[in-house]
Design a protein around this nucleic acid. Structure first.
Length: 268
DNA sequence: GCCATATGGAAAG
DNA sequence: TTTCCCTATGGCA
């Protein structure tokens, strides 16, 4: 259940474990078996994360392309590989460690050209400190709500439901405001914030968005509330009071995903 | 056991 | 805009 920060974090861990190593690859579940055989026994040359996409490169010029989707999970560890358990789509391992992949939306072997095309399909990734100009152009020309544009991977690669809700809160912008009514300075502010928040999220392996000066207010209450690994202002806090203004945090469906915002801090 | 839920995205209509 | 896919887990009987 990952946003871009998690994918970049996993890429780093996989890199530390396997970069330069000859590895074995299989698919206990069977659905990746034919593809696994193509890279099995080859050396890993590089591992890249672009937005929520992960690419594992091999010395035969091919790549494993993984997208976790909503349910996908990696288990990455040093030591001896355990016996297969559950629906195990793919395993990569050597003498030093192993990685297990379950439930991905996408896991296929592709060539260099297809890899390049996949990267080209997505927008700039804040974690890669990409040039935000293409995102600004899309936002500025669109009448779609900014809450929807932030989730569009062709506009902002790697942003997911938590960062979407939180960055809008931090900049006091209503998720329903059309992209073409977002100013350049508001866009720049959100982009810079995403670079910092998502980079920090990559290092820590969790999402924290509460500013240091607000931590005292938050900590007193957060303990009794929903825990999901980080401290946030509005994500999954619907029905509870905003930490800053006291208004009740709202929730609505936006294109099939749950959207959270504070009507007090983010007026329409 | 059953049901709802989850940080996502593509295909179908 | 709706439907479908992928898997595990936690709450409830």
């Amino acid at each position: 259940m990952p946003e871009g920060n998690v994918i970049h974090n996993q890429a780093r861990r996989l890199r530390r474990l396997f970069a330069g190593h000859v590895v074995l690859v299989d698919s206990p579940q069977g659905r990746f078996a034919a593809d696994a055989a193509i890279v099995d026994g080859h050396a890993v040359t590089k591992i890249e994360a672009h937005g929520k996409h992960l690419f594992i490169g091999f010395d035969n010029g091919l790549w494993i392309h993984v997208h976790l989707g909503l349910f996908g999970k990696w288990r990455i560890a040093r030591g001896e590989m355990p016996d297969p358990r559950g629906e195990l789509r793919m395993r990569i391992w050597d003498d030093e460690g192993y990685a297990e992949l379950r439930g991905p939306t996408r896991c296929v072997v592709i060539d260099q050209e297809a890899k390049k095309a996949a990267v080209g399909r997505i927008g700039p990734d804040p974690i890669r400190k990409a040039d935000p100009e293409p995102a600004w152009i899309r936002v500025q020309r669109s009448s779609a709500p900014i809450g929807s544009l932030l989730m569009n991977q062709q506009v902002f690669a790697g942003v997911g439901n938590i960062y979407r809700a939180e960055v809008l809160f931090r900049h006091n912008i209503s998720p329903f405001r059309p992209g073409n009514q977002v100013s350049r300075s508001e866009f720049d502010g959100m982009w810079e914030d995403l670079v910092l928040l998502m980079s920090a999220g990559t290092k820590r392996g969790r999402i924290d968005t509460v500013r240091p000066e607000h931590m005292p207010e938050v900590m007193g209450r957060a303990k009794r509330e929903d825990r999901h690994g980080g401290e946030v202002y509005v994500y999954r806090r619907d029905g509870r009071e905003c930490y800053l203004c006291g208004a009740v945090v709202e929730m609505a469906d936006m294109q099939g995903r749950k959207l959270y915002w504070c009507p007090g801090c983010q007026p329409a």
